[in-house]
Write a protein that binds this DNA or RNA. Sequence first.
DNA 1: AACAGGCTCAACCGCCCGGAA
DNA 2: ATTCCGGGCGGTTGAGCCTGT
Length: 265
Amino acid sequence: MEQMQSKAYNQSSDQEEMADLIRRGPWTVEEDFTLMNYIARHGEGRWNSLSRCAGLNRTGKSCRLRWLNYLRPDVRRGNITLEEQLLILELHSRWGNRWSKIAQHLPGRTDNEIKNYWRTRVQKHAKQLKCDVNSKQFKDTMRYLWMPRLVERIQAQAATSGAGAAASVPPQAPVFGAHTYSPENSSVVASSDSFGTDLTDYCYNNYPVNQDYYHLSNYADQSLISPTAAYFPQGMDLTAEESCQWMNAGGDISDTLWNDIDDVC
DNA sequence: AACAGGCTCAACCGCCCGGAA
DNA sequence: ATTCCGGGCGGTTGAGCCTGT
């Protein structure tokens, strides 16, 4: 650690004096404590002066990042849930790499965390499929295979969790109007924003209160019972047959994808 | 047990934007 | 109108951990 921290200092001659003052690299417990204490007493913002006043030899940016991504009390860490994964896929298909915007709809998750999830999990699959993450091919795979699979697994999870989970469903379980989750009513394809809005609003409103309240089974109707039927509707860019052909053409790749989807899910 | 390769994620970088001076 | 500064954002890096051999 000592080595790493000393290595982290700038080493150019002109910057030597600065390097003595400005620390970089991993934060120590003491620094975290100092930052948290200062923010508790004075609030956040004006990060450069905050850093100075708090006696932290860090850049303002570093302090801000540490606070927002790690120290903030409402930061949630740990595994991204199935529901969160689905939401990320959905929102990313709408907004692209607007991580902070996506993060706003996943309470407690930081843009950094979502970005990392996307890069390590989602991009990995694009790589395995030998296609670009922004290609239509990969987006179709996500839309027609990955996301339905996620919904399927979420349902299965809800079913196996049994009455206990059911009991935690809020009295007014969101049905999201007449909308069911399928690609055509997702804003990915259709102009309607209703699914995304409803879903994200629901997540935002309920997730911080009780995680159990947030599960997609509540707004899934019979169309989700058979994802393959529900997800390859008429008029889609890719028909079920085309999708199957495309996947089968991949041979091992398709098997790998399914396995990976299960792994990731 | 030791090693290599892959993966994760905290942290940094560079760019951009908006507001104040 | 211009410059400066704080803050936000997406992209990238690399140390440490994990896993397979």
